[in-house]
Design a protein around this nucleic acid. Sequence first.
DNA 1: CGGAGATACTTAACATGTTAAGTGAATGCG
DNA 2: CGCATTCACTTAACATGTTAAGTATCTCCG
Lengths: 172, 172
Amino acid sequence: MAKRPADSANGSATIARQVPMRDFSRSLPMSLLRAREAVMRQFRPKLREHGLTEQQWRILRALASIEAAEVTELARTAFLLGPSLSRILRDLEARNLIERKTAKADQRRSMVSISKEGVKLMASVAPSSEAIYAEITQRFGARKLAELQEMLGQLELCLASTDASDDVADET
Amino acid sequence: MAKRPADSANGSATIARQVPMRDFSRSLPMSLLRAREAVMRQFRPKLREHGLTEQQWRILRALASIEAAEVTELARTAFLLGPSLSRILRDLEARNLIERKTAKADQRRSMVSISKEGVKLMASVAPSSEAIYAEITQRFGARKLAELQEMLGQLELCLASTDASDDVADET
DNA sequence: CGGAGATACTTAACATGTTAAGTGAATGCG
DNA sequence: CGCATTCACTTAACATGTTAAGTATCTCCG
């Protein structure tokens, strides 16, 4: 293989001179994307064995830990957008992995919970999942991992206020 | 390792006891996902103003820095899967932002390059993009940012060899 | 009480992620 | 030379990301 170094050593001059930008492959979004992909690549095959996608697994895990939740709350917990969640819940319900019932107090809300079958499925996947996580932790180092997560949390936090909406003018 | 959710004052006991797992919201994949989303949320609106998606922008940036590339090489650089890239290139070509020509030496390969219009578009977006990146850097701290990227790179590296499953000795 | 507005989803439409299969062009080897 | 294999993509099919619009329900204020 080894087609070419393909880095900045070739004729990258032309356009790069007109539009100077940080080396693309070292941008923060790319770093985060690649790191996450590297991690998920470890999990996906095992999940797939059980007919689960990454997002479906997220939902089941979230439900297992909070017992029952409204859709919006679940979306926040599993970090999914409403429309995605809506579709996934429809599918998971069809597979009898979750259950829903509309709340009596507020007909708009529906309470979602994991089913007995869902629990069984989780029980069959969780050990492998934990094993993979342990392997990653060992490879990278537990302390370093904690450090990384801390930094990621701080990054998230320090960017959280910017985008909320256009109401940034109140703190004058 | 802490095998307890240890949060949520409600009845999270039932299932969590049967299937003990790390607190879901603190898993590495979730941390990475949320951090990346927090970052991209800063960029997406501006890109959208110019009719570009995140991936299209990645491709244009990659092309701008390497001048011309085969599809496979571009996929590696922009960190996209072949099928996604195939579709996006079709669209970008229709918008005259890129150009393609099949290589003479090997009819299978096609060389992709950014067009004059593509360069113009990049020039109109790059300043805002850089400004946003600068803002992020300032908020988070340049040193900390570099540290974070270093760790992300290490994480990627230490997981890289696991999944390849056969060709580990080639390049990297 | 009643209607405007807010809320909690759901649908729709388009773009990408992900895996598998397809297509045409090069290669290797008998 | 001939043909199976490999290679470089492309299509296809399904699932999710993302934004906008739709629908039913609830809340609040007059």
